[in-house]
Simulated assay, not measured.
Amino acid sequence: MTDNPAPRLRPFAQVDVFSAEPYRGNPLAVVLDGDGLDAHAMQRFANWTNLSETTFLLPPTDPRADYRVRIFTGSEEFPFAGHPTLGSAHAWLGAGGIPRRDGELVQECAAGLVRVRRDGGRLAFAAPPLTRSGPVAEADLARIAAGLGLPRHELLDASWLVNGPEWIGVLLGSAEQVLAIRPDYAAMAGLKVGVIGPHPDGSGPGFEVRTFIPGDAAAEDPVTGSFNAGAAQWLIGTGRAPSSYLAAQGTALGRAGRVHIEAAGDDVWVGGSSVSCIEGFVLL
């Protein structure tokens, strides 16, 4: 731990991500000037905000990047996460940030450089490569099935989808099954589980998503960019999803998150709307 400077007022925003309507997406706390704060101070503030993630914006160390971000949950630092990427970009632009390249900014995080583009009135990030993918051990799948309250055979497929958070993705047969889950978190202890199932054709969103984090204060995440990124790479890559689709998440929590997925060339873009709900200063 290093010595922090004397506390001072720092610009701050709280952003609702993956929703154009305030208070219907996933909130993110953004400290727009994290200069001089060490990890201990950042972690303490992130724990205090009591949100799923809090970010701190810093000058980049890579000349290709527009800014650098550190991402904290209430208990740990993540190398990458999806809704913090979009929310941080939204806050940075709203504070007057000017990208080095027209139409696209570059965020530096512990996982590397992440491109963020303007997609109409939305922002979208290029999904980072998965650092772990592939089959899930049968013992873990048995625990997940128990935790989801489903027979094992109703888990149609599963894959590790690690791009920062260590997600396990589970495919169900329908969005209705996804929404009916009443999770047993104790049965899934130690696993981060994302579940996805298709909506009927023509019903609006193509897929319904829920993500469960046993042991975390926010056991079900409202809308999860990192999981949707990994799920899109998995499902598009295996032909189970079209190259462009809309995912709904947060329905079971009374939210209305919408995640826009588009595969273009070698990239899978994960996009959504964001809206600033609180702007001001914090003493740090």
Rank of each mutant, 00 (worst) to 15 (best):
L113I: 02
L171D: 00
W269P: 14
P151H: 03
I261R: 03
Q177M: 04
L155N: 08
P165S: 14
T73F: 11
A180G: 15
V270G: 08
G97V: 02
S243L: 05
P151L: 03
S133N: 14
D38H: 12
P27E: 06
V282C: 07
A91N: 14
A180E: 15
F212D: 00
T131F: 13
R182W: 03
R100W: 10
G103F: 01
W269N: 14
W167N: 07
A186R: 15
D119M: 09
L191H: 15
E166R: 09
A231E: 08
S226H: 12
V116W: 13
I144Q: 04
I278P: 03
I261M: 12
A111G: 09
G120L: 03
F18N: 11
A111K: 05
E279K: 06
F80Y: 02
A232K: 04
V268F: 01
V178Y: 12
P205I: 08
A29C: 08
G237H: 01
Y185P: 15
F12C: 09
G257R: 12
R8T: 10
G237V: 00
N50S: 07
D266K: 13
P200T: 00
N4Q: 07
G134M: 08
G280S: 01
D267R: 01
Q14M: 11
S133E: 15
G204N: 06
H40I: 03
A139N: 11
G25C: 11
W92P: 10
L179C: 13
E279R: 09
G87S: 04
D62T: 11
G215E: 04
T2C: 06
R115I: 03
P151E: 03
A186I: 08
F227N: 07
D38N: 14
T73L: 14
I278M: 10
V268T: 11
V275Y: 03
V193R: 05
V162P: 12
G254F: 06
G206D: 11
L93S: 10
G34Y: 09
L171M: 05
A175F: 15
D119C: 07
W234Q: 05
L9I: 01
G96P: 07
A217Q: 09
H260A: 09
W48Q: 02
V209W: 09
P60K: 11
E104K: 09
G173S: 15
D266T: 07
Y185C: 14
S203Y: 06
L9P: 04
H199F: 14
R182K: 10
V116A: 03
P22T: 02
V114R: 02
I213D: 00
Y185I: 13
P99M: 12
M1D: 12
I181V: 14
C277M: 13
R44H: 07
L123T: 10
E208N: 07
V193D: 02
T131R: 12
T251R: 06
V178Q: 08
P99H: 13
V15L: 12
D216G: 02
L58H: 08
D221C: 04
L253V: 00
G147N: 05
E104F: 01
F125M: 01
P22H: 02
I278L: 12
L51G: 01
P11M: 06
Q43V: 02
D140F: 11
G280M: 04
E208A: 14
N50M: 04
L113S: 01
P222T: 01
V69H: 10
S88K: 11
A6H: 11
G36V: 08
I168Q: 09
D16R: 03
A111D: 06
Y245A: 02
Q177A: 12
L148W: 14
I144D: 04
L172A: 11
A263C: 07
L37V: 03
